[in-house]
Design a protein around this nucleic acid. Structure first.
Length: 378
RNA sequence: CCAGGGGUGGCGGAGCGGUCAAACGCACCUGGCUGUAAACCAGGCGCCCUUCGUGGCUGCGCAGGUUCGAAUCCUGCCCCCUGGA
């Protein structure tokens, strides 16, 4: 399922290939987020020309709408959403974090309710979509993911909030471990024949917990390793340490995914620890809010991309291409002034073009990363 | 000419004696966005201040007046809208 083609002589970075039923993925690779079964604002027909290799869908959201059964009936998420590429599905573990962060939400009658309740053997969500209770157990998460039918599924974990205490982090990490065993058990008995499962390392910002978690996960019969609980508010140093600490434990014959990291500098700093895939909502989200990647120095990975805010007035009469050095459809055909106008007017096309462009450059960025690893420069 | 309605900050539009530098929306400006409750969110938005404040000044068509106090009440003027001759 996974094969390393080349290890860098300079770092733990590696070139690899993940083989799935729906296609092969050259790694390191970026995984655009398609939470509800769509990379927001981007029609599927563009995936290929952008170079998108795989995408990341979310169990929590899809279970709420349209429901795992519907997707199952439709023949799986690939068919249902016309996503003809390898897919990863998140387990809902991140929502344990992201919805718990908000803790309470006001109902119409002014009462407050808790969005997430974490128990030893399950998590109860108060759905933010329809306000119904929604129970996630490791078995349920996996069952949903099997029905959704992504190629690569994530074990159900608890993404620990930051900051946290050592004691809580330890307890939560152990809980994630016991959940992993339940996930693996259920998965092995019920999975679709093409599906693989990733176990998730937690441990928050504590070295011994991270290492302990890494050892535990790696010793289970998982197909891939994911690193979670990162980019939740901790400092960049803490994030780098969290990955560095476990980098020596990472297996060479299994793909390693870093959950939720997609900022340019973070990717550069973390790919050298042996990360193969990165999913992140950032490129598509900032695209929709007017931030565009721009090639800064195409010969220097560290300076490869910068960000411009296309809504700034300086672009109002800037009739240059969006990015002089970019070959994408957007940059070949539209000016900054026009993009500026689309954003100011909140035209839907603004999101479409910006998303296209950002993902295009993200793919070029990862091509550059692969090239650097091939040349032992990274 | 008669009858009625109205003129509020860049725009729309609340307020109708004090708690009003004036709701709310739009526009504008500044930030933010890392396993997406996100075509989003937060803050600012009369002028002034080496003190950023229960600070000073100006202010609700124009000019006066009543009042301790007026965007709010009164008088005159100017302008706009609707209906009628």
């Amino acid at each position: 399922m996974f094969e390393v083609i080349k290890f860098s002589k300079k770092s733990k970075a590696r070139l690899g290939i993940i083989k799935t039923f729906h296609g092969e993925i050259k790694t390191p690779a970026f995984v655009p987020v398609a939470t509800k079964g769509t990379i927001k604002a981007l029609p599927q027909i563009f995936f290929k020309e952008i170079g998108i290799q795989l995408a990341f869908v979310n169990t929590y959201h899809l279970v709420n709408h349209p429901g795992a059964e519907i997707i199952d009936k439709a023949g799986g998420i690939h068919k249902y959403a016309n996503l003809n590429l390898p897919l990863m599905s998140d387990s809902g573990g991140f929502q344990v974090f992201s919805l718990a962060q908000k803790k309470r939400v006001k109902l119409r009658n002014d009462e407050e309710t808790i969005l997430v309740k974490i128990e030893e053997d399950r998590v109860v969500f108060r759905s933010n979509f329809n306000n119904k209770e929604l129970e996630f157990t490791p078995e349920k998460s996996i069952d949903y993911q099997i029905k959704i039918g992504a190629d690569l599924v994530m074990a159900f974990d608890e993404c620990i909030t930051y900051p946290t205490t050592y004691d809580y982090a330890k307890k939560a990490t152990q809980r994630t471990h016991s959940w992993l065993l339940r996930c693996l058990d259920y998965f092995s008995k019920n999975k679709k024949n093409y599906q693989y499962i990733y176990g998730i390392i937690q441990g928050s910002v504590f070295e011994d917990l991270r290492k302990e978690s890494a050892k535990f996960v790696i010793n289970q019969p998982v197909d891939g390793i994911a690193v979670g609980g990162v980019s939740v508010g901790e400092s960049k140093e803490e994030m780098r340490l969290a990955v560095n600490w476990i980098s020596d434990y990472l297996p060479k014959d299994k793909p390693v995914h870093l959950l939720g990291v997609g900022r340019i500098d973070d990717i550069i700093d973390l790919v050298v620890y042996g990360i193969d895939t990165f999913d992140c909502s950032e490129p598509t989200r900032i695209a929709r809010t007017g931030w565009l990647y721009q090639i800064n120095d195409e010969n220097n990975l560290k300076d490869f991309l910068t960000i411009i805010d296309i809504e700034k007035n300086i672009y109002k009469e800037n009739f240059e291409k969006v990015d002089q050095k970019c070959n994408c459809y957007v940059c070949q055909n539209f000016t900054k002034a026009y993009l500026h106008h689309l954003f100011k007017e909140k035209e839907i096309l603004a999101s479409v073009l910006a998303t296209y462009h950002n993902l295009y450059l993200m793919e070029r960025f990862f091509e550059k990363i692969r090239e650097e690893i091939a040349n032992d420069k990274l």
